[in-house]
């Protein structure tokens, strides 16, 4: 049974669309597995997701203050030590992963589709549409990301949702450029012309013929940028413009630990390590995904 199922998953002549899709997924996954570092990245990202979804059942409250326990070093009772208000740093990091995952997912879901649309429309229609859309993109691209995000948060007010909006607004332009470049290279190809000759509508050509070809590079870029998103979110938190106390946001925790960094190093170091590992995981995964998509296109 086991071998037949494995064969069913890797057959070169699938019987149905669903099976063909599964076979494709299996083979892509194997390419990913062949890359040790990508596997490590995938493991880190999955661990982060599990931590965000289920971690809060295993640790205490992130906001319970026990002033008698302030600034305790890592021990059997408090694995990562306690902070200046006697809160367990491990509990705060675990709860903080929810905020991190939420920011990363929301930003990716806003930025990917939006950038893709802008780029495809600009590239496909060309002319004035292209000029206008790309000049707008250039304006956003010309401003440093964190500075622009700071300006948005200053205007919108602090908080996680506003941080998400600020990061999204500042990070879509590279996706628009990427999608535009891909669209330009395929909009005059024979298969797009063929679709036109078959009577396909513009919308159909954009979504069925052009989007799938842009998607690979956009997804890879998104995965790479997730680490950047984590860092920007942490940076906003550090500057006091993202999450607000007492929320256990990692950047905010580093900022709070700054005063004790010489004597009580763990207060700033533990959330810093969490930020480092999470962004490393997304980076490694992005590397592996790029290989997977390359294998398919070659």
């Amino acid at each position: 049974m086991n071998t037949t199922f494995a064969e069913w998953l890797t057959t070169d002549r699938p019987a149905s669309r669903a099976q063909a899709r599964l076979v494709r997924l299996t083979l892509s996954f194997r390419t990913l597995l062949a890359n040790r570092l990508a596997l490590l990245g995938l493991a880190i990202v999955l661990a982060l997701l599990v931590l965000a979804l289920a971690g809060h059942w295993f640790v205490g409250s992130p906001t319970d203050q026990v002033l008698a326990n302030r600034l305790l070093p890592p021990s059997a009772e408090h694995w990562f030590g306690t902070d200046e208000l006697g809160r367990d740093i491990l509990a705060r990091i675990v709860h903080g992963s929810q905020i991190t995952v939420r920011i990363v997912l929301m930003v990716s879901l806003i930025v990917g589709p939006f950038g893709l649309m802008v780029g495809m429309v600009a590239g496909y229609f060309g002319g004035a549409v292209d000029a206008i859309l790309m000049r707008i993109t250039d304006i956003f691209l010309s401003l440093p990301r964190l500075v622009l995000a700071l300006a948005f948060v200053a205007a919108l007010g602090t908080g996680i949702n506003n941080a998400i909006i600020a990061i999204a607004v500042t990070s879509w332009p590279p996706y628009a450029r990427l999608a535009r470049a891909e669209t330009l290279s395929i909009r005059n190809s024979d298969f797009v012309r063929m679709a036109q000759l078959q009577g396909a509508s513009t919308l159909r050509i954009l979504f069925n013929h052009i989007a799938p070809l842009c998607l690979a590079s956009v997804v890879v870029r998104l995965t790479f940028d997730m680490s950047g998103t984590i860092l920007t979110a942490a940076g906003l938190g550090f500057l006091g413009l993202g999450a607000q106390p007492p929320q256990p946001e990692w950047g905010l925790m580093v900022a709070a630990g700054r005063q004790y960094v010489l004597d009580q190093w763990w207060v700033a170091t533990m959330p810093g390590i969490a930020i480092f590992i999470a962004s490393l995981g997304f980076n490694l995964l992005g590397d592996g995904l790029r290989d997977v998509f390359d294998a398919r296109s070659s």
Partner: peptide, 20 residues
């Protein structure tokens, strides 16, 4: 060049059927 590299044969032949 006249076949979309991201589509399977199934999708390529199904496309005009869906359009019409």
């Amino acid at each position: 060049a006249s076949l979309n590299p991201a589509h399977t044969v199934d999708q390529i032949i199904g496309e005009p059927l869906a359009i019409h």
